[in-house]
Design a protein around this nucleic acid. Sequence first.
DNA 1: TCCTAATCAGATTTTTTTGTCTGATTAAAT
DNA 2: ATTTAATCAGACAAAAAAATCTGATTAGGA
Lengths: 143, 143
Amino acid sequence: MTVIFSKKCEYGIQAVLYLAANLDGEIIPADEIARKLNIPKEFVSKILQNLTESGLVYSKKGKSGGFALAKKPSKIRLIDIVAAIDGLDIFNSCVLGFQHCSPDHPCPVHHNWGILRTNAYNMLTEETLDKFREKTLRKVRNI
Amino acid sequence: MTVIFSKKCEYGIQAVLYLAANLDGEIIPADEIARKLNIPKEFVSKILQNLTESGLVYSKKGKSGGFALAKKPSKIRLIDIVAAIDGLDIFNSCVLGFQHCSPDHPCPVHHNWGILRTNAYNMLTEETLDKFREKTLRKVRNI
DNA sequence: TCCTAATCAGATTTTTTTGTCTGATTAAAT
DNA sequence: ATTTAATCAGACAAAAAAATCTGATTAGGA
């Protein structure tokens, strides 16, 4: 199966978007996120743990605990989430898997793919969570 | 780990490019392909089996057997290989994994990602194996 | 203050992907 | 024609990813 982001990363982005849609930094339990987004409960919990270690998310243990963003939505870019979960190898390694692919010894699609890759990177870097608030709200309510 | 193509697909494309680099339809054993491309021998053999079932590759059993392209290089597009191994889901499903993503209820990055995806699809569709012959030869010899 | 219920967090299991091994097949040499 | 050596092909095993289970933690009510 071809894939852009791992399931972990997909779920992670979804969950963080959900947190961002609740402006005032409200603490939200993993259980609610899991239900609203149709993600296995303990899986989303684990992913948010990872993001907590990365400093993107804040977690509170115990009763009435949960997760919230650790920064303002305008300070979190989509690329930050991808970097924390999947890493940025995809933007540095050869799409065909050639081990010694470089500008000097390019693979057949090196140039064309490079352009696509740069566009993707720029898109993920330009987009911060605050830009998505309304879109995310609409999307989540329609699931 | 974020990934575009599965290892299987990466290896598959590499192997088919290698076959295409041998113009006259010469039959090449999996062993040689594996050595030249640094791919596990039996794995590349299995992948080429799959491609044989898909009609892209021809296989010959027994001593002095091996694999060759089943069609002229100009008739095989990169997208055909991707479709045969990984399928084309990546070009139809939501990049963030939202189950009900559509133009009516788009995910936050729906539009932007749609453009990138279309570009990628077009690139893989326009590129046929014959265009890569010299590039592949250079690449393989430098590995 | 203690107990309970709800939560996060780490360990475990299942599934998928990747890689390896053994056997069936075939062409060529004897 | 028989044997042999090299190959493809399908069954098997290991590693990685995804999902689940159990235990540690904490706030709030009795």
